[in-house]
Structures are given as C-alpha cells and as structure tokens.
Nucleic acid binder design. Structure first.
Length: 426
RNA sequence: CGGGAUGUAGCGCAGCCUGGUAGCGCACUACACUGGGGGUGUAGUGGUCGUCGGUUCAAAUCCGGCCAUCCCGACCA
C-alpha cells in the first residue's frame, strides 16, 4: 500500500472527547472516527487490525470444531418473550417497530435465535454436541458508553453456543472453548488472566472471564502471586470491605497471597445448563427415545474491544506498539527524498514489491514529507519495522532498520534474509 | 438515571467577566527552498461562534429552553 493513497488522517493532538490512552491513540492514529456516542466508523488502518483479530478468532474457532453461522441482528419480540427477557431486560435492549407496528429488537446477544434454530433442526442426541459461532455486530444501548471503542454501544463480537446432551458433554465443550480462547490470546500476544466471574444477566451455572491485564482496565481482579488462580474482586468482597483490604491476604486457592490487578474483560464463557433450553422447549430424543432438554454453553469474545485492550497493554509516549500478529502492516518502508531522487524511489519500490511478493504486508511511505514527519507517523500507528531508504542507500546501498521497540541496525539493501531475520527477532 | 463539565475552522485553544460583528497554533492549498526526528519563507482557503428564542441600536459575549458530547457513580463482551 502506498501511504500517499491511504486514507490515514493522523492527528498531532487528541480530541478532547478522548480520555483514556487507547481512545486517544485510535483517534490520533486515524483508526476510527465517532459517528455518535458509542458508535464508530472503522477507517482503513483500524479495520486492518480488526480483521486480523477476527481472522485469528475464526481460525481458532474452526480448528476447535465449531461451525460458523450468521444470525440476524434484528430479532422479533416473540422469541424474547419466550425467555421472559423482553420484560426483564431494561432499556439497553433497543426496541424498534417495523412498518406494520410489529415489535423487534436489535440483538445484544443471540441465545434466543440460536436456540430456536436448534430446536427446529436438531432432533436426536446423535447430532450432538454442536458448537455454532458467529462474528457479528452487537448492539447494546449502554447507559453510559465510554472510552471509545472499549465500551461502545455497537461492537463486534464473536459469540458461540454449544448444545450438549448432558452435563459431562457441556463440560467438555466448555473446556474446549476455554483452551481456544487461550490460544487466541496467545496468538495475538497479550498478557491475560482467567478469573472466576459472576454469571450476571445472562445467567446460568458458572462462568469465567478472560481479562487482558492493563492499568486502565475497568475490572479489578485478585490474582495469586504464586499460581494461576484469579477471581473477579466483585465475588470476593464482603459488603464493608474495599479492594485494598484484599491485597496481601492468603489466596483463596491456598497458594501464595493475593495481588490486585486491573483487567479488561475481553472474553466470557458460561455454562448455561438448561436455562434457555427449558423455557424455549429445546429437546432432542436421547438414547432411550425420550425427550431430553439440552444443555447449553455460551462463549463470547469482544473483537473490537480486543483492539483497544491491546493498545492499553502496549503503547509508549510515541504511540501504539502492535503485537506483530495484529499489526495493520508488518513493515513500513520510509523513502526519504522519494520525489527528488529517482534512484531512491526505484530502490524503495523494488524492495516494496519484493517484500509484498513474499506475503508481508508493506506500507511504502512515498509522501513528499521529510523523515521526521514520516517516522513520527509510523511510530504513532505502531508499525513493527521501519526500513529507511535515504542517503545511506546512495552512498553504499544500505538501509537502516528501525524496529518499533527501538532496536536498529544497518543492512545492505539486497540482503533480504538478514532484514527479515531482524524483523522476526523483534 | 443522579452528580460534574464542555460546545468558537479538520484538531488543540484564546476571545465571553467588562456587548461593537472573530483570532492564534497545527493541519490544508500554491510556489520556492529543504529532505535521516513533525524544517523555512511568501501568498492563500476554510467558521450561520451547538441550536431555538429573549434582552438590546447592536449578542460568540447577557438571560432562558432544547440538543449534543465527555467525566464520576449504579449496569455490562
């Protein structure tokens, strides 16, 4: 991609509407623009990151054996009445009417729709277990949207639903999803904790949250300093206690002492049991030929929120630092004097084509600006590797490699292997 | 929904107290120079001052309603 052709409106200063770092940087880096409170357009750079995360999630879901489907975002009132949620849910459920005055809502989650599909199309325990997922825009009319994409009203989420004949099978599906989420977060390259959680409005038997650790996190979790144990402090606090009183106490799992950490909830997995299946009469015939209520699990991971969470965990005073696997571009070629010196322009273009052919995603900064402007933008948008072509090329066919983490070296321009080794070792 | 605040050019801000018809920095356009850390000069573009109403000879400025946005709380991937 040529920088000069890319819609990438970077800002030197953050708009005053932004408070936290990820929101400021996403605006400054030209990733998103606000349309209304909690509702955003994703610009090309932001969308690239969003798609990278989406694809990682999709690949891991597919390899876990789940199947992708796509459900509507507009749901008829009748389905939501079956589970009593039409009444139970407050104004966060955005209700609308069609031209015939029929009631609908924008789907904040999809238990009703998926359960309806399953009860109508699955008849025997032999067809189970099933795990179906979708990647879709959800709408929740939050009381107070905030922090940009982090708590928007419209957001991109992967939600999946498992259907099982019994509790043991549900447990298996649940653990498979738990492993899948670990793989997703490991691939993205984020530090996280899995903590026991309150199952909240969605209900059900038990649930765990996946928290990306970041100082700006909205959730507070208590972790053990010497084991994997973690728990949302909401579940640990007695009514008169404050969070600080937990610090240093013995960990509930018996290993070490409690440390308090801030986290961003990016995933939540639930064992729902028969909760929705019962009210919606979702049954299959079991091996005895008798109707048997399904056991369900549901598993959500916030794709758009992961973009913000990744920034909250990885940034510096210069801008965003993307983990390699979700960076919008792998490499930025900074061509200095691109419009003045044909030798530099053609060397930069040749390198660009060569790397692109090798399946790297490459940005070529061919703008008429000076080095300062180009490197500042590159650091703001967080490209892992800069290859700088300028006077060193003219003098002795060398380029400078400058990684986003600060490491640098000089290399012969035709020594692609060493350049790529430098990239991979970051 | 309770508490707090803000709204003037794409972004950051000044002007408002003390009314006289809008300004600064950045960005943007043209040209020239510059070209390895947001460079320099010259000349420009861009605003019904959130909105509606009131007061006044005159309103960005004073008064009132509304709207939007943000922050803190109660709720959530």
């Amino acid at each position: 991609m040529l920088y000069s052709k890319l819609l990438l409106p970077t800002l030197k200063e953050a708009p005053q509407e932004a408070e936290i770092i990820s929101h400021k940087l996403m605006l400054r880096a030209g990733m998103i623009r606000k349309v209304a409170s909690g509702i955003y357009t994703w610009l090309p750079l932001g969308l690239r990151v969003l798609k990278k995360i989406e694809n990682i999630v999709r690949e891991e879901m597919d390899s876990s054996g789940a199947q992708e489907i796509f459900m509507p975002m507009v749901h008829p009132k009748e389905l939501w009445e079956e589970t009593k949620r039409w009444e139970k849910m407050g104004p966060e459920l955005l209700r609308i009417k069609d031209r015939h005055e029929r009631d609908f809502c924008l789907g904040p989650t999809h238990e009703e729709v998926i359960t309806d599909i399953i009860r109508n199309n699955v008849k025997s325990y032999k067809e189970l277990p099933l795990n179906l997922y979708q990647i879709q825009t959800k709408f929740r009319d939050e009381v107070r949207p905030r922090y940009g994409i982090m708590r928007g009203r419209e957001f991109l989420m992967k939600d999946s639903y498992s259907f099982n004949i019994d509790e043991d099978s549900l447990q298996e599906s649940y653990l498979t999803m738990r492993e899948t989420y670990k793989k997703v977060l490991n691939r993205i390259g984020l530090k996280y904790k899995i903590s026991a959680a309150d199952s909240g409005a969605i209900g059900g038997d038990s649930s765990e949250e996946f928290h990306v650790l970041a100082d700006n996190g909205e959730d507070t979790i208590a972790i053990s300093d010497s084991s994997e144990f973690a728990i949302n402090t909401d579940l640990l606090l007695k009514k008169d206690e404050n969070i600080n009183s937990l610090e240093g106490k013995p960990s509930p799992d018996g290993n070490g002492v409690i440390k308090i950490k801030k986290g961003i909830e990016v995933g939540h997995i639930f064992k729902l049991g028969k909760l929705y299946a019962e009210s919606m009469k979702a049954n299959v015939l079991n091996s005895d030929g008798k109707a048997s209520t399904l056991f369900m699990g549901c598993y959500g991971i916030g794709i758009s929120r992961l973009v913000a969470a990744s920034i909250e965990q990885n940034f510096d005073e210069k801008g965003i630092i993307w983990p390699h696997n979700i960076a919008p571009f792998d490499i930025n070629i900074i061509s200095i004097g691109h419009h003045k010196d044909k030798k530099i322009a053609s060397a930069a273009t040749e390198l660009y084509e060569q790397l692109t052919k090798m399946n790297y995603s490459v940005l070529l900064d061919d703008r008429k600006d000076g080095y300062g402007t180009k490197i500042k933008d590159s650091e703001l948008i967080g490209i892992p590797l800069n290859i700088i072509i300028g006077k060193n090329y003219i003098e002795n066919k060398e380029v400078e490699l400058l990684a986003r983490n600060g490491q640098s070296s000089k290399n012969a321009i035709n020594d692609i292997k060493t350049i790529l080794d430098f990239f991979k070792n970051q």
